[in-house]
Design a protein around this nucleic acid. Structure first.
Length: 198
DNA sequence: TAGGTGATCTTG
DNA sequence: AAGATCACCTAT
């Protein structure tokens, strides 16, 4: 069962980011179906978060998608190399997004290894947003894609107990000043595919 | 721990 | 039109 649009259109982007831990991320690229369990996310809020690309309703070609109703993909190129996959949330004109930073491989691992040119399953395969996207076959062509379609979607899974989720500050956003301290990054405790514990 | 990489955005 | 910036990864 795909998570319905109503899951994404809620206003609490931080709460949704926490709920995403443990859910299944599916992609079907051509005939290849791959699945990963989401183990690390970060929340970005357009209204009051300097780290968000759409901070203060900033509108550019790249951020257009933020203003759509929640439940679609925001993919962009970072450092000229990495494709970063985000999920747009909240209602129309409220610009929130969730960066998916890491998954634990569940199905189609041989295709993930192939896409990453690796031969062993470890954190290098799907840990870190750039690696995760590459392993799942997500690219810039998926910008704006609906998560109700047959290309990228999420499915519910066994709930993760609250005490197994670690909240901490986000990484790589020093320019966001005081907002860089917000504990808006969520990780599944003890999972080997997330960033190393601090 | 340093450097590569290129689209996007801002400034002049 | 040019230059600074950037939510990262990999290898020494």
């Amino acid at each position: 069962m795909k998570l319905p649009e109503s899951f994404y259109t809620r206003p609490d982007v931080v709460g949704i980011s926490r709920e995403l831990i443990g859910k299944e991320l599916h992609t079907r690229i051509g005939d290849v179906h791959t699945v990963g369990i989401i183990v690390e996310t970060e929340a970005y809020s357009g209204r009051n978060d300097k780290a968000c690309h759409a901070y203060l309703q900033r509108r550019t070609k790249r951020t257009e998608i933020f203003y759509q109703r929640g439940g679609c993909a925001y993919v962009y190129l970072c450092y000229g190399i990495h494709r970063l996959f985000n999920i747009i949330t909240n209602v129309e004109d409220e610009a929130d997004a969730i960066l998916i930073r890491a998954v634990e491989p569940l199905r189609g691992t041989e295709h993930m290894l192939d896409r990453r040119s690796l031969d062993k399953i470890n954190r290098r395969l799907t840990g870190g947003p750039g690696s995760m996207s590459q392993a799942m076959g997500i690219g810039l062509e998926h910008y704006g894609e609906s998560l109700q379609g047959d290309c990228i979607w999420l499915e519910d899974a066994k709930a993760v107990p609250e005490q197994n989720i670690i909240a901490s500050p986000r990484v790589g956003i020093g320019y966001a000043e005081e907002d860089a301290l917000l504990p808006w990054r969520f990780r599944l405790k003890g999972n080997g595919f997330t960033s190393p514990a601090k």
